[in-house]
């Protein structure tokens, strides 16, 4: 067995630490409540996320126009309009309402963010649980798989995959799920190694509970906050990755995302036109959603690793 170096890119956690006892799902929920009660940043992050989620859900109501709808006047497209009360953020060089695109863009961002986060957390947690609990050759093979995933360059892999399959946001989610489980699974695994030695797990074993029962009812609840931590980080990475892939021109042409908007703006020379109303909002929106994911993960960190909070 090797020593793994676990570096959480955002929080700076270098090793997973023993959690306080407690074995039931209620413990997980309590932890969650605690995260947002104690940490103002985490709460801010949650509020931002909920805000964007509401926008995404009610996008058709909020947005005055469709994302690809061309605004016409006398047979001419109303292109490069400056912001006004009619067009809050002006129009694109091909006559689309930028504000409406921004609103609809939140749907893609959150869809990509949440589904990638879910996939990463679920796969990583299951792999980590199985590897940590069973040990032996299962552990060896799964962790070598994680090594493989660590060795594959992330962005190039996604670009190649998206270019080879039909461009779609789901390919991006798939590619992220295929690679990013590695971080989560390693941390979860070492956490499981610790937890499974604890008294309540041994008690379960003695009372004749099946392995699956032990994994999911005894061990899983105590590592769920860790999954949540890595999941909330993945939200940010997913949104940034989608934006980068769109910027390089490999995105789904039928879907307006913030990354697509920025790509469109740059390719239509919005900078040279001084159309900052076209460039700044999507970038800010990306930054805010990604940061909200980071804030939330910091909240988990502070609850999970209370030492950092003492001071």
């Amino acid at each position: 067995m090797q020593h793994e170096i676990k570096v959480n890119e955002i929080t700076g956690i270098t090793d997973a630490k023993v959690l306080s006892g407690g074995s039931l799902l209620t413990n997980f929920l309590r932890t969650n409540a605690e995260v947002f009660k104690r940490d103002r940043l985490a709460l801010t992050g949650l509020i931002i996320l909920v805000f964007f989620a509401l926008i995404a859900i009610f996008a058709p109501v909020i947005a005055p126009r469709g994302p690809f709808e061309v605004i016409e006047a006398d047979g001419f497209w109303l292109s490069n309009e400056k912001p006004s009360t009619d067009y809050l953020l002006g129009t694109t060089n091909l006559g689309r309402d930028i504000f409406s695109q921004l609103i609809y863009g939140s749907r893609v961002a959150l869809l990509v963010g949440f589904s990638a986060a879910l996939a990463v957390a679920v796969i990583g947690t299951i792999v980590g649980l199985i590897a940590g609990f069973y040990g032996g050759w299962v552990d060896t093979i799964l962790m070598r798989l994680a090594d493989v995933a660590f060795g594959i360059p992330f962005l190039p892999f996604i670009i190649v995959l998206v270019a080879f399959l039909t461009p779609s946001i789901w390919i991006i989610v798939l590619a992220m799920a295929m690679l990013l489980w590695r971080d989560t699974s390693r941390v979860i695994r070492s956490q499981v190694l610790v937890v499974k030695e604890q008294a309540f797990v041994s008690a379960g074993k003695v009372s004749g509970a099946s392995n699956l029962r032990i994994i999911f009812l005894y061990i899983a609840p105590s590592i769920l906050p860790l999954s949540a931590l890595y999941g909330s980080l993945a939200i940010g990475w997913a949104i940034l990755t989608e934006a980068s892939v769109s910027f390089l021109g490999f995105s789904d042409p039928d879907v307006v995302s913030w990354g697509f908007m920025l790509q469109d703006a740059f390719n239509s020379q919005a900078l040279s036109r001084g159309a900052y109303y076209w460039i700044i909002p999507p970038g800010l929106a990306i930054m805010l959603t990604v940061m909200s994911g980071f804030f939330i993960s910091r909240g988990y960190e502070e609850v999970l690793f209370p030492r950092l909070r003492k001071h």
Binding site: I10, A243, G283, I286, M287, L288, V290, M291, F294
Partner: peptide, 8 residues
């Protein structure tokens, strides 16, 4: 700085 898209 980590949340802002690099290309942006």
């Amino acid at each position: 700085t980590r949340a802002a898209p690099q290309f942006w």
